[in-house]
């Protein structure tokens, strides 16, 4: 394992791929791996791209890659597609649009299935970002699953969030709704050669101008990604947002909040594992469940009893 991490830091692509698999599969060495990697992270800038299925996220990533590579930056891409709730399988097809960059040694693309996560990212997206960050990628693009209105995990993961819309995706009330319309640092109206583009752009702008207190006002950029139109403008806007975050001190603030959340989540994760390991050791859960089902006990006091039985200062799991 130590060797894998060393190889990763040296820039070995096979090691990066193997490490992502290990964290994604919740390998027993996962925590140890992340511990070893952590000191080498924090250098990559993370951009999230979200939007409805078929809005053009993958094509936009493909086009953005041209601009990013023209400036000589190295890129990691994490493309998330949904895992079947029935079979656990998935079709990961985002890279189809990006295969022109498959042989560029400075581009590393990884597809991930959501594996039960519902917030638009996969269960292990954040860990995969850390691997690519330690791998030395300057920029990491995270493409979410095709989302609806409320899958907003990306905003807690990315430094800049791009929300991708297409023309005629609803009337102006849709732009006022909470959720995905609130998380954009940049709006992209893709397929801008279709009728209705001007109205969509105007409606988004109107919504944005209702709120005048924010110091960052998202740009609304029309693009036609299959023809490469608007991509240069998007790349410029992306750099402007990064500059804004850096000079206003917000980037440091956002990242501090992220670390706070990661620590909280890690503690909760460990507590949960620890508690269940002990509970399963001490109780026959099935019996208890049957008693609750027969109304001989209730789930509320039973849960308290289970927790009371645990000694947190004993045995290290």
């Amino acid at each position: 394992m130590k060797q894998l991490v060393e190889e990763l830091l040296k820039g070995n692509r096979r090691a990066a791929a193997r490490l992502i698999t290990l964290v994604e599969n919740e390998d027993r060495q996962k925590t140890e791996l992340l511990q070893a990697i952590y000191p080498h992270t924090g250098n990559a800038y993370v951009v999230g791209i979200t939007g409805a299925p078929g809005a053009g996220k993958s094509s936009l990533v493909d086009q953005l890659l041209q601009e990013i590579r023209a400036e000589g930056l190295s890129v990691g891409i994490i493309a998330v597609d949904p895992t079947s709730p029935f079979s656990g399988g998935a079709i990961l097809g985002d890279r189809i649009r990006m295969q022109d960059h498959a042989l560029d040694q400075e581009v590393f693309i990884r597809s991930m299935g959501t594996r039960g996560s519902l917030g638009g990212l996969s269960r292990s997206t954040r860990e995969a970002i850390q691997v690519l960050d330690a791998f030395g990628k300057d920029l990491i693009l995270v493409e979410t699953v095709g989302v609806g209105q409320s899958e907003v995990d990306i905003v807690r993961t990315a430094d800049t969030t791009i929300v991708l819309l297409t023309p005629a995706s609803g009337d102006s009330v849709q732009t006022l709704k909470a959720g995905i319309m609130e998380i954009a640092d940049l709006f992209v109206i893709n397929k801008a050669d279709l009728p209705g583009t001007e109205r969509t752009v105007a409606e988004i702008n109107m919504m944005l101008d209702m709120k005048n207190s924010a110091s960052w006002r998202p740009a609304v950029i029309p693009t036609v990604s299959i023809r490469g139109e608007g991509i240069e403008e998007l790349w410029t806007a992306l750099k402007e947002h990064r500059l804004y975050l850096e000079t206003s001190g917000q980037l440091a603030e956002v990242r501090l909040q992220r670390v706070r959340r990661e620590l909280t989540e890690q503690v909760e994760y460990l507590v949960k594992n620890r508690v269940w390991a002990e509970v399963k050791d001490k109780f026959v859960l099935e019996e208890l469940i049957e008693k609750i089902a027969r109304r001989e006990k209730d789930p509320y006091s039973s849960a308290c009893e289970l927790l009371d039985s645990i000694n947190f200062f004993e045995s290290k799991s």
Binding site: S84, S87, G89, A90, I91, G93, R95, I96, S111, G113
Partner: peptide, 14 residues
């Protein structure tokens, strides 16, 4: 599609 339904993660290149 069949591999997906058998629980595998399938990456398709195009």
């Amino acid at each position: 599609r069949a591999l997906r339904d058998a629980g595998m993660e399938v990456i398709y290149t195009g």
